[in-house]
Computed example of a mutant assay.
Amino acid sequence: MSHTAQITSHRKPRRSTPRVSLRAGVAGGVLSTIAVAGAAAPANAEPVTETIEMPTITAGLASDFARSAEATQQVANTLDLRAQQDAAAATAAKTAKTAKAEAERKAEAKRKAEEARKKAAEAAERASRTAERTTLSNASSDSGSSSASSSSSASDTASQATSQATGSAAAVLAFARAQVGDAYILGSTGPNAWDCSSLVQASFRQIGVDLPRVSQDQSVAGTQVSLDNLQPGDILYWGSAGSAYHTAIYIGGGEFIGAQNPSKGVIQASLDYDPPTGAVRVL
């Protein structure tokens, strides 16, 4: 055989490089197939095709995404509104708390001022009683024997004045006269010790008239009357109207009954003995 004779090769024919083709498209909302094809060595070989079905974003899914986004935005808006409402409520609560504290502070200041006013009035009354007691003590050494006759005369005048008073005034004077000789103790309200305003208050309570407890209030409890036009049952006061430091009851005949001071107690005396500043009428 010739060395150049043609020998049939047993090598497998070389295959061409596979070709992959990806095609995608949307038709009617469904992803078209992706075809992968490789060319076989023989020209007339059937191409190998592999088909993979893949989902695509359809119009329905897009609508769902849109609704989800809208719902998320609504939740965010609701949370933001709630945060604003909570902040407003907190601010309102803080403002209310501040206003309440200020109102309480003002009320407390007013209460303390009222207490201070009453204490000042009581202190003035005590000071007046002390000064009066000193004056009376000095004068008592000069009065001597005249005191007994004066007391008798005062008793007679009181009886006459009480008999001249009628109705409610008579009841007031009768109670006040029954207390003559009782002790004077500041703050006492009876039955055997009084201060000036408690005796006046208790005397008028006998006829159902409820007077204030302290002198300064009693001095404006009725109609102001002139000292030249007094009637039995009028309330006498010492000091200014509204800030008086002492009160007593006019019994007629130019005399009064009152809880005078710790050294004298409840007495009946002439207006000349201790001239009052003014008077009010409640009957």
Rank of each mutant, 00 (worst) to 15 (best):
S2V: 15
S145N: 07
A24P: 06
A165H: 01
T166H: 11
L283Q: 00
S168E: 09
D86P: 03
T98A: 13
V36I: 14
K110G: 09
N192A: 07
I267T: 11
K110F: 07
S197D: 00
T223N: 09
A76H: 04
T49W: 09
S155I: 09
R126N: 10
E70I: 02
L186V: 04
V180H: 11
V214P: 02
G29W: 04
G258I: 02
L81T: 13
A158P: 02
P18T: 12
A101Y: 05
G60N: 06
M54A: 03
L31T: 04
R129I: 07
I57V: 04
R23S: 07
H3K: 14
G38N: 11
A269L: 06
D210G: 08
V225K: 08
D217Y: 13
V48A: 07
D182I: 08
G258K: 01
S63K: 00
Q231P: 13
F204G: 02
I185K: 11
A131L: 05
A121V: 12
G181Y: 08
A127P: 12
K94M: 10
Q6I: 15
K97H: 10
A43M: 11
S140F: 02
G222F: 11
V200L: 00
R281K: 01
Y245H: 10
A183R: 07
T51S: 08
F256P: 03
T98W: 02
E122H: 13
A88R: 10
R14P: 15
T189W: 03
P276G: 06
K100D: 10
I207N: 07
R11M: 15
A5P: 14
S140T: 00
D195W: 00
S155R: 10
S152G: 04
W194F: 13
L230H: 14
S21P: 12
